[in-house]
């Protein structure tokens, strides 16, 4: 698993995908948090970095799909899939290697935003006057959400040998799981089941954790989502044997 993980991270870095993703993520967030009028922290008057946590899930829909789209598609297209699968590696160790490589890149994109936290911390009046619980909860939620997106992205990559298809499917699935259930839940026709429908979406649980209340049910939700998509990936991965 570690040899795959190492190789993936190196190829992310050498193909510049990782760097582009990290830079784009940080520039977009920087602009929305500090420059654009509507979402500007400095003008808002409150010492928090909520705009970051509202925005990041949307940006990640694009960026994480871009990171994961090539992980299996490219191997399939170039035939190196056959090299990997005839080496003494279990299917799961290949998948997990690629999964953690993607997740590590995403975490490296999130880490620099701690500078924003530090800035707001210093700007608070009095200094350090901000809701730490909510912020750390939000960071945890963001990491869990990214972990879910990466799993979705890997699944989208294994189903096709075309990177563009994989990218679009991944964006669709991430968006679907992030916010569609919210909209569905707001329709009147679902009446009493609306809570359950909202509960199925990522954003419901993400909001919960963002409040700083770490509920085991939310954690279990994210872990199940990740597990589900990695399991589906494993099934498709082994489908060459059918």
């Amino acid at each position: 698993m570690f040899s795959i993980l190492k190789k993936e991270i190196r190829s992310f870095l050498s193909s510049l995908i990782a760097i582009i993703v990290i830079v784009v993520f940080l520039i977009a967030n920087g602009l929305f948090l500090w420059v654009f009028k509507e979402t500007n922290i400095l003008d808002a008057g409150y010492a928090n970095i909520d705009p970051l946590f509202d925005l990041a899930p949307i940006i990640f829909i694009f960026l994480i799909s871009a990171i994961t789209m090539r992980s299996f598609s490219e191997e399939k297209k170039s035939g190196t899939f056959e090299i990997l699968t005839t080496k003494p590696l279990t299917d799961m160790s290949i998948i997990m290697g690629k999964y953690f490589a993607g997740l590590i890149i995403v975490i490296f994109a999130i880490l620099p935003t701690l500078i924003y936290y530090y800035t707001v911390y210093k700007l608070g009046l009095p200094e350090g006057n901000l809701d730490n619980g909510a912020i750390w909860g939000s960071y945890m939620g963001l990491v869990l959400l990214s972990a879910g997106y990466v799993a979705i992205g890997l699944f989208s990559s294994i189903i096709t040998d075309n990177q563009i298809v994989s990218f679009i499917v991944s964006m669709f699935l991430c968006f679907f799981f992030y916010s569609t259930f919210d909209y569905l839940g707001s329709f009147a026709i679902f009446k009493n089941t609306d809570f359950f429908i909202e509960w199925m979406g990522i954003s419901y649980h993400y909001r919960n954790i963002s409040k700083g209340v770490i509920d085991s049910r939310d954690i279990v939700y994210f872990l199940s989502l990740i597990g589900l998509f990695l399991w589906l990936t494993k099934i498709i991965f082994s489908s060459r044997k059918w």
Partner: peptide
Amino acid sequence: LPEHNPLYTDM
């Protein structure tokens, strides 16, 4: 050595 010798061309 598989047919067509697939390799990671960017490595």
